[in-house]
Nucleic acid binder design. Structure first.
Lengths: 241, 241
DNA sequence: CTGCTTATTTACTCGTGGGTAGGAATGCTA
DNA sequence: TAGCATTCCTACCCACGAGTAAATAAGCAG
């Protein structure tokens, strides 16, 4: 980094100015700037995550970066935009999950499960809070519309996978709309409690959830093993009590 | 209502002053006051529900009641308390659901489903938003602790029912903690979208969710009917594509 | 009628926080 | 060296909203 300047004049003196373009420095500054901008957005995400959008001031975010408020404003235009960028960062992870799943040579249910696992990981990630809890109420009508359309896209993607599962027989009879709400809701909610209990990774939680969704609460009647029969007897006893 | 006062003097003139106690008026004023207080809390719940806690000013709440801000402060001591009262009103419905379910002579899974149905209705109710989205971050440490303990009580209640279901065999093998999170999360999330789509009642939504939870996504292999076999073939075809 | 209580108002205080103006470093270009 | 762009800071503005002081209206008690 710092030696660039000292070597530059030497090359320049040899008559090869094209080799070390004079634009290089400015390109690197641009890249620097982009990195800093991302740092601002990540810092905002962390603070929102910790204290909520309304309880986080731009002074807080600036302090977390060890700069002052106007510096933050040098990289973003408003607090609202900051939230929006965090939101988009989170949503992008989920959209990637859909693209990836589309390639998999699996039944629709298995593709859905793959998407849900990624979905859960995204919600437990740094931007999960912003993605899940960015309230339309906190944003201008224009941004609110934009966010709603992104959310709707994800919702429709899940419903579509469910419908495909109904078609290929890998998913049991159900109402796609309500089922999609139930699945997404369970995963979204992770953002509310994950902070407090980090004993599991996002991936582990998502997998546990998917297992519940796939199997359901009601026990499946396979060939009855010994413990299954015991259980059934216990239940009869309990009911007879 | 209004004729009571006109008849009072007549009774009083007959020499039966004890019959119309002089305290009665003040007792009624007290009751009036309580009714007004409840109206304030309900109005707050509605406004929070529409615009969120931070985007609702006490002036808004007052305006909704067609009074002024100090009047609201005559009935509650702070905005925080207002949110807290809304929260408690919501939670109380759920606690009632647990008490009720305890009496039912059913398997644990069925009792759990009954609780979840009431739970879903409560979340879709007037106070659902406040109950579900009251952020610890928005409240003083003392209230935050109080709210957390109430929430935890509900969580433990669900886990307990799940454990009972594992014991009596009515619930399939699962991790009680994660399963409770998944179920509660799906239902809690209703508060995020129910405003927008009121085509179903809270009870209908809750029932649809419970059906999904109980059955699971994976089809159950009963005696294969014609359509089940067709589905399986379709799936093989899809996979072979 | 007089005084006490309840209920509600008008008219404020004051802290907080989003956002900005304008200047000072820093460094690149000519 | 001057000159221009980038980056960051100090010092502000100002709107909004929680909460309050104090006055007023409306009953009711003696």
């Amino acid at each position: 980094m710092s030696n660039r300047r000292s070597s530059s004049p030497v090359n320049g003196a040899k008559g090869a100015p094209a080799l070390v373009s004079p634009w290089r420095a400015s390109r690197e500054r641009l890249r620097d700037r982009e990195l800093k901008r991302e740092a601002v957005i990540r810092a905002a995400a962390r603070e929102f995550n910790r204290k909520g959008y309304h309880n986080t001031s731009l002074d807080d975010i600036a302090a977390a970066l060890e700069v002052t408020k106007p510096t933050v404003y040098y990289y973003v235009t408003s607090k609202e935009q900051l939230l929006f960028e965090c939101f988009v960062a989170g949503v992008e992870q989920i959209r990637a999950a859909f693209r990836e799943a589309r390639q998999l040579p699996l039944s629709a249910r298995e593709r859905l499960s793959a998407v849900l696992r990624h979905y859960g990981e995204a919600v437990a990630s740094e931007f999960g809070w912003c993605m899940v809890r960015a309230e339309d109420q906190d944003l201008s009508p224009a941004m609110s519309r934009h966010i709603k359309s992104l959310k709707s896209e994800i919702d429709q993607g899940i419903r579509r996978l469910i419908r495909e599962g109904l078609q290929d027989g890998s998913i049991a009879e159900c109402d796609p709309k309500m089922t999609a709400f139930a699945l997404a809701g369970a995963l979204n909610w992770i953002a509310h409690w994950y902070r407090e209990d980090q004993s599991l990774t996002g991936a582990q939680i998502a997998s546990a959830f998917v297992t519940v969704f796939e199997g359901g609460l009601r026990p499946r009647r396979g060939p009855l093993g010994i413990e299954s029969r015991t259980r059934r007897r216990r239940m009869r006893d309990a009911l007879a009590r």
